Simulated scan of single mutants.
Amino acid sequence: MKNKNLVAGILGGLVIGSALGILFAPAKGCETRKKIADKSRDLKDITKDSSEKWAQKITQTVRQLKTDSEQLLENNSKIL
Rank of each mutant, 00 (worst) to 15 (best):
I36Y: 04
G13I: 01
V62P: 02
A37M: 03
K39W: 04
V15I: 13
L6R: 05
S40N: 10
A55V: 06
K28A: 09
Q64W: 06
K53M: 10
A27M: 15
A37Q: 01
K4C: 15
Q60S: 12
A25N: 09
L72Y: 10
K53S: 10
K66L: 13
D49Q: 09
N76A: 15
L14S: 02
D42S: 12
N5W: 07
S50P: 00
S50K: 06
R41I: 14
A27E: 05
V62A: 11
R33W: 08
G29T: 04
L80M: 13
G21S: 10
I79M: 07
L11F: 05
V7Q: 00
I22Y: 01
I46C: 03
N76V: 11
K44P: 02
I46L: 11
G12C: 06
R41E: 12
T32I: 15
V15R: 00
Q71A: 04
K48T: 15
K48Q: 13
G12L: 12
K2V: 06
G29E: 07
L80V: 07
I58R: 10
L14A: 00
E52L: 13
K28V: 03
W54S: 13
I79A: 11
N5V: 11
T61H: 08
L72E: 09
W54A: 15
L14H: 01
I46F: 14
A27N: 05
T47I: 11
C30L: 12
V62M: 08
A19P: 02
Q71P: 07
G9W: 04
G21L: 06
A8S: 02
K2M: 06
K34T: 04
A25P: 00
S69C: 11
I58G: 01
L72I: 14
L6H: 00
I36F: 10
I16Q: 04
G17V: 03
K78Q: 11
E31T: 12
Q71R: 11
K2Y: 05
K4P: 02
G12A: 11
S18W: 00
L80C: 12
I16Y: 04
S51D: 06
D49P: 05
V15N: 02
K28H: 00
I22C: 05
V62I: 15
I58L: 14
Q60K: 15
G9T: 01
S69H: 13
S18C: 10
A19G: 01
A25M: 06
K28F: 09
Q60C: 03
A37L: 12
S51A: 09
N3S: 15
L20W: 04
K35F: 03
I79S: 12
Q56S: 14
L14G: 03
K66F: 14
A8D: 00
F24W: 08
L11I: 12
A19R: 03
G21K: 03
T61K: 13
D42K: 07
N76H: 09
G21Q: 02
N75H: 15
Q60M: 13
K66A: 14
K53L: 08
K39N: 09
P26R: 10
K4Y: 14
A37S: 09
T47M: 06
L73A: 14
W54H: 11
Q64I: 06
N3W: 13
L23M: 09
V7K: 02
K2S: 10
K4D: 09
K57H: 01
